[in-house]
Design a protein around this nucleic acid. Structure first.
Lengths: 262, 262
DNA sequence: CTTGATCCTCACGTAACGTGAGGATCTAAC
DNA sequence: GTTAGATCCTCACGTTACGTGAGGATCAAG
């Protein structure tokens, strides 16, 4: 690929077997600065210098450089490359295994990040004009969920949200937006939990919850746990989240629902 | 998880609403140094200072810090966090998308590295006592292959190697170790390509090649291309690789094989 | 008043070079 | 012999997100 300029590369017959930094850089695709750096850290010290101080690399140096590039292609950091080339093959397999584990950890962590970001982009697409504050609230909710749900449960939830239409998602949000203030109101004016209006609200509430959990007991348990531990924090930081008091209240309506058969 | 010491945390009623760095650090799980750093770069400048210069963080500061932590959880670098919090939501989706792409590139590159390392570990397990030089040769061969084979072909080859027993792999290596010098010998002494000994060698050669390619035309073509482009380099740097001349020679025997039905 | 905890501000170190600054040397052409 | 352009040299700062002291001031409690 690299077109070399043969007129410039040719040298006197005596010094044919040595190269200057620039030549070596062109041949190997590295930069001059990188070669200087390798010299600085003692990874590749040129065997010779001209009287004026210009670096001269011999064929042996070039071979070492090829080895360095090979090892760098495997992603080893420069100091490991140096150790490996200095004959520390005692631990060769362990070094590789460690390196692989480091990489896999990074892959896992980056994969988690990508999942979060996708999920975030998803949320943003549904609701336009988000403020940075709302953004952070979404993120907080997401990370809380990661703490309380198992990865499989998160997968299930994500799949369910993906298969739902945007329309339905907005509808659900609107419905919560109606339900929560309504229940709040009844709680404040002291409506009995088993009053017919509350039973009706409880039925709608239950339907929404079941649509979210999909009838999965593990998921609904996780929701409860999350709610118990973080509920008050969520309430203070997000609007449109039921307070623990409301939760109690609707729970009583639930029990009333169960007592009075539909 | 962190046990806070309430006796220490309690402050006089007047200053209840402010925290010093250490307290904030304990509450948020960050280090004091990190908070200093955020102050230095202007990401989170505490609203107040005591007369003696100690930082005092207000509730607003704590909220901003929570936002910072949210965005950091998504893997955004600090300067992006700063930009996002300064209300540059113009590009919110683009920022997220860019960030996601960066991460996915990294994942892809690390995944490639892990594959190489696994393959390398594989090779090392089959042959013990490798020198660093041999190691680099293996790496060079591997990266050459990545240049000439498509990812699917590499998958196929890897799968085939994995399903092969160690025993068979060693056997194949031993056989190449016999065949190559033998053919080299006949080439040097000038045996005719259609001589019976050469036909026998060609048959064995062909069987080995077919075992490697699995009859896949794409793979055998890729092998040929790689060989034409890198053959001489490979020969100079690795022992036990057929020279281009040998390749020509065995090709003639192939044609003789085809002419003379088995 | 002392003591231990906490606070402050520098300031260097990290990985692998990029990017000049300022100056010496080389090579070919005139 | 000189000169221009390419190439070489050695500093030395910048990059990320802090860690890790150094050396000293301040705070809270006994």
């Amino acid at each position: 690929m690299v077109m070399s300029a043969p007129t410039r590369e040719r040298r006197s017959a005596v010094t044919t077997e040595s190269w200057k930094v620039g030549q070596l850089a062109r041949r190997t695709g590295l930069t001059v600065r990188a070669l200087h750096h390798y010299d600085d850290i003692g990874l590749l010290v040129p065997s010779g210098r001209t009287p004026s101080g210009h670096r001269l690399y011999t064929r042996a140096d070039v071979e070492r450089l090829q080895q360095i590039q090979s090892l760098r292609l495997m992603g080893f950091p420069l100091d490991e490359v140096k150790r490996l080339l200095s004959g520390a093959r005692l631990s060769l397999r362990r070094v590789i295994e460690l390196h692989r584990m480091r990489l896999e950890e990074q892959i896992a962590s980056h994969t988690r990040l990508v999942e979060r970001l996708s999920s975030l982009a998803d949320h943003l697409e549904r609701s336009d004009g988000v403020t940075t504050d709302a953004l952070c609230q979404i993120i907080e909710a997401m990370t809380s969920m990661e703490k309380y749900f198992t990865p499989e449960q998160l997968d299930t939830l994500r799949a369910r949200r993906e298969e739902a239409t945007d329309h339905r998602v907005r509808e659900v949000e609107r419905e919560w937006g109606e339900l929560i203030p309504a229940v709040q109101h009844h709680l404040e004016v002291g409506t009995a939990p088993d009053a017919p209006e509350m039973l009706a609200l409880a039925r709608r509430w239950k339907a929404l919850v079941e649509e979210f959990t999909g009838g999965d007991v593990g998921i609904s348990k996780a929701v409860m746990t999350m709610y118990r531990n973080e509920g008050d924090v969520l309430c203070r930081r997000m609007s449109n989240v039921p307070t623990p008091a409301m939760f109690d209240y609707i729970g009583q309506s639930y029990r009333a629902l169960a007592a009075v058969p539909a």
